[in-house]
């Protein structure tokens, strides 16, 4: 399933639900919670997280405590607000599309 244009909302949602996590866990959560529906190259998540960080929606830091050095990501307050706004926008979009195509059946 093509998720271009919706990746930001998905990443913000995963971070909101999972709390501070590293990139691999973000990707795993995305894959598991979508039950494999989203077929995206896993590596594209990292530039997307960096982009969200530059926008001030995500903060990150190196976690040196694990066996491997990992970058841990978490939502900022702006990120939570952006997530809520995007979620609202998405619901409106879904309602509009359903109205046009005639429900879920």
């Amino acid at each position: 399933m093509e998720i271009r244009g919706h990746l930001d909302l998905l990443l913000l949602s995963v971070l909101d639900n999972a709390g501070p996590v590293h990139g691999y866990a973000v990707i795993t959560a995305l894959r598991d919670s979508s039950e494999g529906a989203f077929d995206l190259p896993e590596g594209t998540v990292y530039p997307a997280l960096q982009r969200l960080e530059r926008a001030g929606l995500v903060a990150s830091r190196w976690d040196e405590t694990a066996a491997r050095r990992r970058r841990v990501y978490e939502l900022t307050d702006d990120g939570r607000r952006a997530r809520a706004a995007k979620k609202q926008e998405w619901r409106g979009f879904v309602v509009g599309v359903q109205a046009v195509i005639g429900g879920l059946a």
Binding site: G23, Y24, I27, E42, G43, Y46, P47, Q50, R68, R69, R70, R71
Partner: peptide, 13 residues
């Protein structure tokens, strides 16, 4: 940073 993360990700995968 991306290169480090890619290396870590691939090692884990």
């Amino acid at each position: 940073r991306l290169l480090i993360e890619a290396e870590e990700h691939l090692a884990e995968a």
